[in-house]
Simulated assay, not measured.
Amino acid sequence: MTELEEKFKKIINTISQEKGNIKFFAIARRSDSEGFFDILISADWIRQDDFEILKYIVKIIKSLLNKEEIIDISRVILLNSDDPILKQLRPAITVELGGIVHLDNCVVNNLAIEELTIFVS
Rank of each mutant, 00 (worst) to 15 (best):
M1C: 04
E3P: 03
E3A: 03
L4N: 06
E5P: 02
E5D: 12
K7E: 00
K10Y: 00
I12S: 02
I12F: 05
N13Y: 06
N13H: 09
N13A: 12
N13C: 04
N13M: 07
T14C: 00
I15C: 01
I15V: 14
S16K: 05
S16C: 04
Q17E: 13
K19P: 05
K19F: 10
K19Y: 02
G20W: 10
N21R: 11
I22F: 01
K23R: 15
F24M: 06
I27A: 03
I27V: 14
I27M: 11
I27H: 02
I27C: 03
R29N: 07
S31R: 13
S31G: 08
S33V: 02
S33W: 04
E34A: 07
E34S: 15
F36L: 12
F37Y: 15
D38W: 14
I39D: 02
L40H: 11
I41K: 05
I41G: 06
S42R: 11
R47T: 09
R47D: 13
Q48G: 06
Q48I: 04
D50Q: 10
F51Y: 08
E52T: 13
I53V: 14
K55R: 14
K55Q: 11
Y56Q: 01
V58K: 14
K59S: 09
K59H: 07
I60F: 01
I61C: 00
K62C: 03
K62D: 03
S63I: 05
L64G: 00
L64C: 00
L64V: 02
N66V: 06
N66H: 13
K67L: 10
E68L: 10
I70Y: 10
I71K: 15
I71W: 14
D72M: 13
I73K: 13
S74K: 13
R75Q: 09
V76Q: 10
V76H: 04
V76K: 05
I77L: 11
I77P: 07
L78M: 13
L78V: 06
N80V: 03
S81M: 12
S81Y: 11
D82W: 10
D82V: 07
D83N: 15
D83V: 11
I85W: 15
L86Q: 09
K87V: 02
Q88Y: 12
Q88S: 14
R90V: 15
R90D: 03
R90L: 12
P91R: 12
A92D: 09
I93D: 02
T94M: 14
T94C: 09
V95R: 04
E96F: 15
L97N: 10
G98I: 00
G98P: 01
G99R: 12
I100F: 05
V101H: 01
L103P: 05
L103K: 13
N105Y: 12
N105A: 02
C106N: 08
C106A: 09
V108E: 07
N109M: 06
N109H: 15
N110H: 13
A112L: 11
L116P: 08
T117M: 02
T117C: 02
T117H: 02
V120Y: 01
S121H: 06
S121R: 10
